[in-house]
């Protein structure tokens, strides 16, 4: 029987960590782009747009991420389209992330005083111009800290992709456990790696929050 050293386990986990990081970044960036589009729709005041966006957000916030992964993985397959675990995980995490980011950002947009909208309206600016030149430059300052804070949730959310067979950190942990029968050691190392990924992010969010308080 092959003997695994702690280093063997750890180095294999690190290799899988790469996929956790890649999945996190893609979900966060794509989720951010989709979230920004949704934000414009959500705050547009155009009733049908607001309505559709609300339903979208309610769906992705109000159902478990795991179930969303299943829906993308098994659901799309029902239409005869082959979906790889990678695709399903990317799509589910992107949409899930976008729903939360839209809500975070909507809060930031709505915290901008009404007078800013009225002044820019009076200057004949359109909704897009107001968002682009007046509202978002101010709202984005407020949004940085909670957005970075939420990225921690995205990193942890990628762990669920292991259940549909995508090999990232958690899945690698499960596989190594099956080979070594040392669950406590393996999952401790897995947890440690997640912590090392997330701590800098939450630390940065804290720092940014502090900086915002002294900003003008």
């Amino acid at each position: 029987m092959v003997q695994f050293t702690v280093w063997d386990i750890f180095s294999n986990l690190l290799i899988a960590t790469e996929w956790t990081i890649i999945l996190s970044i893609i979900a966060f960036v794509c989720g951010g782009i989709v979230g920004l589009v949704l934000l414009f729709a959500r705050t547009s005041g155009v009733r049908p747009l607001v309505f559709v966006t609300k339903i979208y957000i309610e769906f992705f916030q109000g159902t478990p991420l795991l179930m969303q992964l299943f829906l993308f993985f098994f659901g799309i397959a029902l239409f005869g389209i082959e979906v790889s675990p990678w695709m399903a995980a990317t799509m589910a995490l992107t949409f899930w992330t976008s729903a939360f980011l839209t809500e975070i950002w909507r809060g930031c947009v709505e915290s901008i005083p009404k007078g800013q909208w009225e002044a820019s309206t009076s200057l004949a600016m359109t909704y897009f111009e107001q968002m682009r030149y007046v509202i978002l430059p101010q709202a984005s300052r407020i949004a940085v800290a909670p957005t970075v804070g939420f990225s921690v949730q995205v990193v942890k959310g990628t762990a669920l992709a292991s259940i549909i067979g995508f090999v990232e950190l958690t899945k690698a942990g499960t596989m190594l456990n099956n080979a070594t029968f040392r669950p406590f050691l393996v999952y401790s190392l897995v947890a440690l790696i997640y912590f090392c990924l997330c701590f800098p992010l939450s630390f940065m969010a804290k720092k940014l929050e502090g900086r915002l308080n002294v900003a003008r």
């Binding site: 005083p113 007078g115 800013q116 009225e118 002044a119 820019s120 309206t121 009076s122 200057l123 004949a124 600016m125 030149y133 007046v134 430059p137 101010q138 300052r141 003008r216």
Partner: peptide
């Protein structure tokens, strides 16, 4: 078009805080 011809000044100023005085004037 209407709002280009009708200016408005508010009680609470409502200047854009992220822009300089000149930036505020130049934006529109």
């Amino acid at each position: 078009e209407l709002r280009r011809h009708v200016g408005m000044v508010f009680q609470q100023f409502n200047l854009f805080p992220h822009l300089t005085a000149a930036g505020n004037v130049m934006l529109a």
